[in-house]
C-alpha cells in the first residue's frame, strides 16, 4: 500500500484559483466597458449597446456551437473537442443562401439549404471524428479547407448581392426597439441555456467530454452524443449564415474569416464560469466582451486591426493561465 497524498478541501483562508480568475476576468470586462463609457462618446447608450449585441450575433451563434463541441469532446485544446470548420462553414452556407436566393428560389428553400448544408458539414465532421477516430483538430481543419473551396466554387470569388423578405426581417427592427437580429441572439441564448441547464443534456454532455468511460458506464450513448454536438455546431453555423447574409446583404469573400474570434470566445468563456468549464453563459459573456472591444475601438478611432492583435494576446493568456492552473503540484 502506498503512502499517497490526497486532495483535500482548500483551507478557508485561501481563494481557489478558479474563482480568482473568474473575478479577475469579470473585473477586466467591467474596466474595459467603464473606460469606453468614459472615453468614447456614445458608447454607453442603449442604441449602441443594442448594436454591439447585433454585431455579435453571428459570432455568438458560432461560439455557442464551438462551446457544445468543446463540452462534448473534452477541454483539451489539442486532443479534445474543437471545430475549426465553423468559420468556413458559415461562409459556405452564406454563399449557398445568396446563390439560391439569386437563382430565384424562395426563402424557405434557400434557408433550408443553408441550414442543411451547415448541419451536413457538422455530420461529416462527426463521422470523421467519432466513427473513424480522426483527431478533431485535423478532421475539422480538412473540412474547413473543403468548405472554403466549395464557397469559392459557389461564388467564383465574387460578391453575391441578394435581397429577400427573410433577410429584410432579420436585419429589420423588432420588438422593444431591438432589431430582429438582437432577438435571435436572445432566443438562441435562452434556448441553449434551457437545454444545457434545465434538461439532463448539459450534465450528460459534460460527462461524455470529461470522462467518456464513466459516461459509458452510466449507460449514456457516448458516440451519438459526441456526434450530436458536431451536428448541432454545424446547424448553428447555418443559422448564423442567414444572419450574416442579412447583415452583408448577401455573401462576400472572406465573410467566414471569423475562426480566431470563435476559438477565442469559446476559450475565454471558460474563465467566466464557476468551475472553469465551457458554458453557454460564459461564452456569451466572452462574445459581448469582444464585441464591446471592437465597438469601443471604433468609437475612439483606433484601427479595428488592433483588435486582432488583442485577440491573439487574449488567446495566449487564457490558454497559458488554464495550463498553469491545471498543472499538477
Amino acid at each position: 500500500m502506498t503512502a499517497q497524498s490526497l486532495s483535500r478541501p482548500l483551507s478557508s483562508g485561501q481563494m481557489p484559483p478558479a474563482r480568482l480568475l473568474r473575478i479577475g476576468a469579470t473585473l477586466l470586462l467591467i474596466v474595459a466597458v467603464g473606460l469606453f463609457a468614459a472615453m468614447a462618446p456614445g458608447f454607453a447608450t442603449a442604441s449602441n449597446l443594442a448594436d454591439v449585441a447585433e454585431q455579435s450575433t453571428v459570432l455568438a451563434l458560432l461560439a455557442f456551437g464551438m462551446t457544445l463541441v468543446v463540452i462534448a469532446g473534452g477541454p483539451d485544446v489539442v486532443r479534445g473537442g474543437i471545430d475549426l470548420s465553423l468559420g468556413a462553414n458559415l461562409g459556405l452556407c452564406d454563399a449557398l443562401y445568396a446563390a439560391m436566393s439569386n437563382a430565384g428560389h424562395g426563402d424557405g428553400t434557400s434557408a433550408l439549404v443553408a441550414v442543411g448544408a451547415g448541419a451536413a458539414v457538422g455530420l461529416v465532421n462527426a463521422v470523421a471524428i467519432i466513427r473513424f477516430g480522426v483527431p478533431p483538430l485535423l478532421a475539422t481543419l480538412a473540412s474547413m479547407n473543403a468548405c472554403a473551396g466549395l464557397e469559392l466554387v459557389v461564388t467564383q470569388n465574387t460578391v453575391l448581392t441578394t435581397d429577400s423578405p427573410l433577410l429584410g426581417i432579420v436585419a429589420g427592427p423588432g420588438a422593444l426597439g431591438l432589431s430582429t437580429t438582437d432577438w435571435i441572439l436572445v432566443a438562441m441564448t435562452a434556448a441553449l441555456l434551457l437545454v444545457m441547464h434545465a434538461t439532463p443534456v448539459g450534465l450528460r454532455l459534460r460527462a461524455v467530454g470529461l470522462h467518456p468511460r464513466a459516461a459509458r458506464a452510466a449507460g449514456l450513448p457516448v458516440a451519438a452524443m459526441g456526434a450530436g454536438a458536431y451536428v448541432a455546431a454545424g446547424t448553428l453555423a447555418g443559422l448564423a449564415a442567414i444572419v450574416q447574409a442579412a447583415r452583408l446583404s448577401g455573401s462576400s469573400p472572406g465573410s467566414g474569416d471569423i475562426l480566431l474570434s470563435v476559438v477565442l470566445t469559446s476559450l475565454l468563456g471558460v474563465v467566466f464560469s464557476r468551475r472553469l468549464q465551457p458554458t453557454i453563459g460564459g461564452t456569451l459573456a466572452a462574445v459581448l466582451f469582444i464585441g464591446c472591444l471592437v465597438n469601443g475601438f471604433q468609437l475612439v478611432n483606433v484601427s479595428s486591426y488592433w483588435v486582432n492583435g488583442i485577440e491573439g494576446v487574449l488567446i495566449l493568456s487564457v490558454v497559458a493561465l488554464r495550463s498553469l492552473l491545471q498543472r499538477p503540484g
Partner: peptide, 18 residues
C-alpha cells in the same frame, strides 16, 4: 473511479438517471 472530474456529489450519483 468512474467519476467525472468537476462533477458534484449529486451529479455523480445521478448521471444518466436524473
Amino acid at each position: 473511479p468512474m467519476l467525472v472530474p468537476g462533477f458534484t456529489v449529486a451529479e455523480a450519483l445521478f448521471l444518466g438517471d436524473e
